[in-house]
Design a protein around this nucleic acid. Structure first.
Lengths: 124, 124
DNA sequence: AATGTCTGGTATCAAAAAGAAACCTGCTTT
DNA sequence: AAAGCAGGTTTCTTTTTGATACCAGACATT
């Protein structure tokens, strides 16, 4: 079988779409270090809505990247943890995050230069 | 300065949002090997609309990851190429793509298992 | 001179996805 | 009985995305 994410309907495309995602990168970055409960994750991921977190977690669980464990405490606590499969991805995702941090000044300079050059030629 | 992509408004978050993106990963994966013209890219990236390609390229150019060069041929040809900054990212993006290919069977199995377990408990 | 062709886009409109906020459930404490 | 908490789901609005049509410049053809 020749898997090819450049083909629009190849399963690898869907997987790439899941892992090449802002929230996945940040979320697995957290779970890589320690399991965490739903609302705690929500507090860590600034800007993430409850609905999206629910969807992303469900998707990652289905793909076998995280596990969901409900403990019968009161009130119930649900802990999400990364799987061994998920761990095989964390180093790469960590590089994505650190690239953003390491190169942010360069990118911001490029943006300023671009915005300066294109100033006044928006379209009319 | 303490850059932190976990903060919703940190510039690094915006950069992460751009690089942790399906189309960026696939597009830079192509440009990493050779420069390419607009319509040729469009043909390579199955499922990508002209509008999105235009937007993604503009954004990547602004961030200094690709360059745009218009040649006065007839008709005009516009070539997009990766920059040295963009090259510093390609190895990581390549790992993302290959992870998807290398682990697709595992993921598909996890999906089948999940779908089997949750069968019939959708909600009513 | 009008027509057609090619590249590299933009404009417009419909559909899908994401965000915000309210609501729900099960269980306990006040 | 009312309120509180965790972990969600529903509903509604706003943003993104996708599909399609259209446009411009520079020729070449009829």
């Amino acid at each position: 079988m020749e898997w090819n994410p450049y083909a629009g309907t190849c399963p690898t495309r869907f997987v790439l779409d899941r892992i090449a995602d802002k929230w996945t990168v940040l979320l697995l970055g957290i779970l890589a270090h320690r399991p965490m409960r739903f609302n705690a994750i929500l507090r860590e991921l600034d800007g993430l809505s409850q609905k999206m977190l629910s969807q992303v977690l469900k998707s990652l669980e289905r793909d076998g990247l995280v596990t969901r464990t409900a403990y019968p405490t009161v009130p119930v606590s649900v802990e999400y943890a990364i799987t061994p499969l998920g761990q095989t991805l964390t180093a790469t995702l960590e590089k994505l995050r650190s690239w953003a941090v390491d190169n942010i000044e360069t990118v911001l300079n490029a943006q300023r230069e671009y915005d300066g050059k294109t100033l006044g030629q928006e379209k009319a």
